[in-house]
Every structure is written in C-alpha cells, then in structure tokens.
C-alpha cells in the first residue's frame, strides 16, 4: 500500500524510534547499509538487513525522511517503495552534519548559544543598504580601467 510510505512527521518518528539520538544512529546505520549496496531496497528488506532490531514503521519513517532530505531516491515497486542511495556517502554525511547543525541553530537561540554565525539575518532595508555599500566597495577596489 502506498500510504504505508505516507509522509511522516517528526512527532511520530521520535515516538517510534525513542528519541533523536536513536534516530540519528538509525539514519547512520541505514546510510551505511546503502553505501555497501547498489540495489534498490524496500522497507522490509532494509529492516531485515538491519537485523530486525528496528520496528517496521521506524525503518519506514527513517527511509521516508532520508528521501525527503535528498539522501535517498525512491521508486514504486509493487505495493511499496524501493530506495536507492541518491548521493555519494560523503555528500550524505555532509548533509546530515548540516542538518544537525541547523537543528542546533533553529529556534534554539535560547538554549545555550553554542553556535555563532558569521552573518545574521538581513531585513529588506539592510539588504538594500549592503547591496549599495558592496557595490561601492567593489567599484573602489577594482582597477580604474574596469567597469
């Protein structure tokens, strides 16, 4: 049934997999599994290769999430989806690091301030101002014969 692969929401995922830490570990395990194989795998195949330690729904939501993040591609195979790896492992790892960092950043300025960002948000006025300043700076820094 296609709706078995219905879009998940984070609440279900957290409930099903017992927390963010487990979720990250499961994602890593799934990606490691896909890194070693070229074939397309369905949810039950992935579940079996993981040793059956994770619930079907947990594996399903993990795969759906990795698909949504762009780490996995999927095609319909019969009633279910079959997943393949979408990018080289390093790129996938990068995407995961990026996502973790963003989780730390997003809406969590209140929670410890462990990240300092190079540039903050710009409002439209600031954007106009900076565009003008940058234009002047680039103009001044270039040799006079260039436009």
């Amino acid at each position: 049934m296609p709706e078995r692969d219905a879009p998940d929401d984070d609440a279900t995922v957290t409930a099903a997999s017992g927390g963010r830490r487990d979720r990250g570990a499961l994602e890593a395990a799934v990606l490691a599994l896909f890194a070693d194989t070229a074939e397309a795998l369905t949810v039950s195949e992935v579940q079996a290769r993981l040793g059956g330690t994770s619930a079907y729904t947990t594996v399903m939501t993990t795969l759906a999430r990795l698909h949504r993040k762009g780490a996995l591609n999927r095609q319909r195979r019969g009633k279910a989806f079959a997943y393949t790896v979408a990018a080289p492992p390093q790129a996938v790892e990068d995407a995961i690091v990026a996502r973790r960092m963003r989780e730390l950043l997003e809406g969590r300025t209140d929670r410890g301030e462990v990240l300092t960002r190079f540039v903050a948000e710009l409002d439209p006025t600031d954007e106009q101002l900076l565009t003008r300043i940058l234009h002047q700076l680039d103009h001044r820094n270039q040799p006079p014969d260039q436009p």
């Binding site: 950043l105 997003e106 809406g107 300025t109 960002r117 903050a120 948000e121 710009l122 409002d123």
Partner: peptide, 17 residues
Amino acid sequence: TPRLALGGADHGTADRV
C-alpha cells in the same frame, strides 16, 4: 533555508559593516 529566531529584529550585520 533555516531562519534564526532572533533574525529580522537585529541589524547586527549592517551595523558591523
């Protein structure tokens, strides 16, 4: 693109420039 909760309100970047 992630947005910072504190974004918008502060003009930090323009002030730094």
